[in-house]
Design a binder for these strands. Sequence first.
DNA 1: CGCTTGTTAAAACTATCGTTTTAAACGATT
DNA 2: AATCGTTTAAAACGATAGTTTTAACAAGCG
Lengths: 221, 221
Amino acid sequence: MKTAPPQETLGRILVAAESLFAENGYDGTTLRQITRRAKVNLAAVNYHHDDKESLYLEVLTRRIRPINQVRLARLTEAEAQAAGGRVPLEQLFHIMAEPLFGLCADADERSQQAARLLGRCLVDPLPFMADFLAAEFQPVMTRFGQALRRHTPALSPADFLWRLNFVVGAMQHTLASMHHVKDLTQGICQHHDHAAALSCFVQLACRAFEPVPPPDRGMDR
Amino acid sequence: MKTAPPQETLGRILVAAESLFAENGYDGTTLRQITRRAKVNLAAVNYHHDDKESLYLEVLTRRIRPINQVRLARLTEAEAQAAGGRVPLEQLFHIMAEPLFGLCADADERSQQAARLLGRCLVDPLPFMADFLAAEFQPVMTRFGQALRRHTPALSPADFLWRLNFVVGAMQHTLASMHHVKDLTQGICQHHDHAAALSCFVQLACRAFEPVPPPDRGMDR
DNA sequence: CGCTTGTTAAAACTATCGTTTTAAACGATT
DNA sequence: AATCGTTTAAAACGATAGTTTTAACAAGCG
């Protein structure tokens, strides 16, 4: 019969929704689960947000927006410092991946679940998500794509895009599966060991975009 | 026994379910959608199968089982022919990926949707799927893992598993996103161009497991 | 023919979904 | 201190989910 903390309700809903969406997906999560975990009333979610879809988008926006802002800022800075605007490959992939891998290894468990959610929301093609995802990721993808393309002008467009697709897929999959990577590897890989995962990913991504396979010509700068 | 009408119903349910699960996921698909698309009665799915979960597992089993059988058979054959049982890396990844990439490029649209479903069912961690996936994929993963390990004995276990994780993720993501890769790449990559995608993937996977990066120490066999 | 058996058709059932409604409790302003 | 807009609690709403039930239909066989 007493009212809960004043303004905290909205934040608790977002936190609970984030973890539940990460665990069970959008369709697999009910508003009753969310409000139960958030310890708020069921109607609160429809009061503070329009509906379930907008809640989902808001949860995602809160995470994606700052991450992509950091990525773009770092890329801009790196391009300003690099000679001729050609940022080294390792640095490029580090800028792209570090904000996400860092989330996985955050001490706060909410960050880990956020990473999991980000990883899987890009594979779940919910109909109402298409425009949102395009708007949020298009700038960063084109910027990185252009920067990446400068390193591999010899690759055919199709070959370039296939490689990019593989690298992005490796990253997304890692985000989505980091929470049980310990079980999958029988304890050998740990989710908090993000330094190893990140450096390994960057290394692999660089190799994926190395000029061309035939080393006969010995073609380097 | 069943004799009178060709039990087309069961097959039509499986086909319709496969495409709908691929498009909308497990929770996003209703039995009414399935029976409507299959042009069968709603109760048919509960008559021929136990429930929605078993239908889902049956759809997946029909695809996964033969694919993994082919993979294991080819691997066995390759190991028998290879010198000292060391199958070349390219061949190894080709055996692992070809059955799946071939599905993507099949003329039958149902195969493409099956590939999409396989790609996404491994990221959607439905609670009732854990045992099933472990049972279906554990043999092929350990066999391939061992064969792969012979090529990279110098890698630390953690490093090895991280790389494997990235490569598997790249493949899964490609399966799940192949259906709209044409839109993403503005027509440059086509889903039926599976030869390019496959060879590109194999190439990338081989590079991911190349011995070690630092050439300073000159540490190789 | 009747009776059984395997399948389909249509409707009903129960549970739960997202959402709305109603009323009560708070906080700041006068 | 009373009031007004804001936030909460609790119940209810209509829709739809998975599943079950019941009856009808079509063959096989004595």
